[in-house]
Design a protein around this nucleic acid. Structure first.
Length: 319
DNA sequence: TTCCCGCGTA
DNA sequence: TACGCGGGAA
């Protein structure tokens, strides 16, 4: 099978798989809207936390801030409060900043060009293209980590850097089916072509012999949900190493969360959502009662981020 | 334990 | 190019 034929087979297989798989996910609240602001809010939330959590918070957030204008004239601190529990509070500030930019520069309407979207705070290549495709029906390819993984494994059979991954994705978009295709490919990467224990034995691409990584021997050996995770890179069993490793969008290891600055940041912000935090309470609130210096250092970073402001008495509150 | 997610900054 | 971010989930 040549590359062109394999690409067409992959597109057809993934779309056919999605016609069945989509049913459950179509019930998610953000799948039934093409309103650009609602899409922007959904993508910002989904980029950082899981579907179940976003499902709970998303309707409440939009009920309070249904338009960019409503968000723009709300104090940043109130937007952070509505964000409480989602984490990554700087993204709430980014969304607030984006809303203000949309009002100031675009008359309150989310812009419909890649360049204008990328110029909004907190909006990068993924979010910008997701809005273009989902809200505006653009013929574009959205490359998130799931898509990057599928491209590296099934299409290229080797790691891809981002520019190449984007170009590869661009060539696959079926004309007139941009939204369906992008949703299908992201769901496919999330559900079948997972990072860990990919479901090669039930994969429609492998079944067609169209996977550049697994080749035509679908589920014959090695990487599969039935095996251990180590099987994915077990060369002794004849498996080529996972091409997704080190490919576009793959993030490296993160330091452990318990005991980290991030944990203390989260505790301080959540406390400030309820009431201003006095200097005397700061270390206890941060969870480091014996390390006052550390609590103050982390709090200063939060002020520098614009997530907290320091009052006259040194108390910390939301902006 | 280990992995995971897109963006901004350094 | 590498890291910080806020935890949740496997």
């Amino acid at each position: 099978m040549d590359d062109g034929a394999r690409a067409r087979t992959i597109v057809a297989s993934v779309l056919a798989w999605w016609q069945v798989a989509r049913v459950e996910r179509d019930r998610l609240p953000w799948r039934s809207t093409s309103d650009p602001w609602e899409v922007l809010v959904a993508e910002t939330m989904l980029a950082q936390t899981t579907v179940g959590r976003v499902s709970q918070r998303y309707p409440l957030f939009l009920a309070s801030l249904p338009t960019p204008g409503a968000c723009a004239r709300t104090p940043a601190g109130e937007v952070v409060r509505l964000w409480a529990g989602l984490g990554y509070y700087r993204r709430a500030l980014g969304l607030h900043g984006a809303a203000r930019a949309i009002v100031e520069r675009h008359g309150g309407e989310v812009p419909a060009t890649l360049g204008e979207l990328l110029a909004l705070p907190g909006v990068g290549p993924y979010t910008a293209r997701a809005v273009l495709v989902t809200a505006f029906g653009a013929q574009a390819a959205v490359v998130d980590t799931n898509v990057g993984r599928v491209l590296a494994r099934a299409v290229a059979g080797r790691p891809l850097r981002m520019p190449e991954a984007q170009r590869t994705a661009d060539t696959l978009v079926p004309p007139g089916r941009s939204r369906d295709w992008n949703l299908a490919l992201m769901d496919f990467g999330s559900i079948v072509c997972r990072s860990r224990r990919p479901s090669c034995s039930s994969c429609p691409v492998a079944r067609e012999g169209a996977c550049a990584w697994r080749g035509g021997a679908a589920g014959a050996a090695g990487a599969d949900e039935a095996g251990t995770s180590a099987a994915c890179s077990d060369m002794s069993r004849g498996d080529p190493a996972d091409p997704a490793a080190g490919s576009a969008g793959v993030t490296g290891r993160q330091s452990r969360f318990p005991g980290s600055d991030r944990e203390g940041r989260g505790r301080i912000v959540r406390a400030a959502c309820d009431a201003p935090v006095s200097p005397a309470d700061l270390a206890r609130v941060a969870g480091w009662p014996a390390d006052v210096d550390r609590a103050h250092r982390v709090a200063e970073a939060l002020v520098a981020d614009g997530l907290l402001v320091c009052g006259a008495g040194g108390e910390l509150r939301l902006p």
